[in-house]
Design a protein around this nucleic acid. Structure first.
Lengths: 251, 251
DNA sequence: CGACAATGTGCGTTATACGAACAAATATCA
DNA sequence: TGATATTTGTTCGTATAACGCACATTGTCG
């Protein structure tokens, strides 16, 4: 791609949208300028353009995203075969296990949920498709990182904000790299309350018919119901079964 | 807003992203130019910019959206109070009714799902938050349209593609306007297999503490389990209860 | 009321990027 | 396989889009 094929004004605008992140419902011009490191006047024009097009509302101080903004990315979930094909398998997996089951892919340093089936909600956060979790402390993140070349996985860990969500969260990069080696060897990852106290999950990678890892699936359960030590014996057979079935149908 | 505050290059780029819609996983340059009615060279530069930034992959012919594109706007679902506040109520509603419960808001001619709780999936499509349905033939769409001034509702119907999804789908604008008047009078809408054969749903509007309608909630059920004639007696009391509880907490 | 922060605005400047036209590549069809 | 149609790549002249700096205005806080 040549430099003259790059539209920098468009790129700046996308950077402004990304400034909202996952936690900011609204932004001021000054906040968005700080987050994007773009000139304040440039950011102001981008935000005003979003408001004019209906992607945001402006009350004279704050820009608030509107439902229209969901048009900008939902095609990935609604039109891409992978989420659509995995969903029925997760429905069955959730039914058989009696717990929630999800699928995700890696995007940068995070896993993005692309499909989910749940019975009762037990997590404090709602992980519908499009939601993100840091890969280093999520079971699906662990298996997706384990499927990468070690230098690439290490690079992602180095770019991650390795914060301790609970006293059980592993945050040392070397410890995490050893853990990824173990995950690769065993073919699954178990997270024992590293993301959130009270929650355990077990995940396996999903490969397509050419052996390339394209997603991960997991089963999540409350630690009170299923201690981490039992996650493997109770759920790994079901996950392996689903893994094998999906391998035959994904290309 | 002054014309000089509008960034037309950014606006064109957003139009190109929207060209993917809800059903197109991939687009060629020519397809995107046709859908957006922009010059082919302009569209090409926008798509190449998306690819360069990682929002799409390019195989030399097709541009395919990547999971990164989900960063564009997910803050609306993950950071906006409305979806987060409604979710626990839908969980309870789903539990009590034994059916799926959802919330949505109006965006253009469609309803966008913003929260969902489900037991078993019975629809052929997966309606996770971010998904869209045409408002004219969805129960939540009916109640949201009914909450608008008649001229505005009529304008939305006129802009809709009023297609018959099933033999039961109402598509005549005058018939639909009468139906909206009935919905307004009764305070709820029941859809009897107009969206998809085998599926019924009942919805009520959700107002905030100032009486302004901000969302709709529904319960959906298989027609085989709950005939449309019974939807009101079985589920309207539960919906009204949730409606009242939400009114107290939404501002 | 003054200090400080945030926002609005003007405008000189130039880099951005548009789009038309032509070339090259790919797809389709007989 | 060649002809034709369609799509994509590329050049480049040109206009203007839009950048960003500086100053003015407004809002907030103590």
């Amino acid at each position: 791609m040549r430099e003259s094929d790059f539209v920098s004004g468009f790129a700046r605008g996308l950077k402004v949208i990304e400034a909202f992140g996952e936690t900011r419902q609204k932004l001021t011009i000054a906040e968005a300028a700080k987050l994007t490191e773009l000139d304040r006047a440039t950011v102001r024009r981008c935000l005003l353009t979003l408001a004019d097009l209906g992607y945001a509302d402006y009350d004279g101080k704050f820009f608030v995203l509107t439902p229209k903004v969901l048009r900008l990315g939902h095609a990935y979930l609604s039109a891409t075969p992978l989420p659509l094909m995995i969903q029925p398998y997760l429905d069955q997996l959730s039914e058989k296990s009696g717990q929630s089951a999800s699928a995700s892919v890696l995007d940068g340093t995070e896993v993005v949920y692309i499909a989910r089936a749940s019975q009762k909600r037990v997590m404090s956060i709602n992980l519908s498709p499009g939601s993100r979790l840091p890969a280093y402390c999520a079971s699906m993140g662990r298996v997706l990182l384990a499927a990468l070349p070690e230098t690439e996985a290490r690079s992602i860990l180095d770019r991650s904000e390795l914060k301790a969500n609970t006293p059980l969260t592993k945050t040392d990069p070397d410890v995490l790299m050893n853990e990824l080696r173990r995950v690769r060897a065993e073919g699954c990852a178990v997270i024992d309350q590293e993301l959130e106290l009270g929650l355990c999950s077990i995940a396996v990678p999903i490969a397509n018919d050419r052996g390339r890892v394209v997603a991960a699936i997991n089963i999540g359960a409350p630690a009170a119901h299923v201690p981490a030590a039992e996650m493997v014996t109770r759920y790994l057979p079901l996950l392996k079964e689903t893994q094998g079935a999906l391998r035959l149908v994904l290309r």
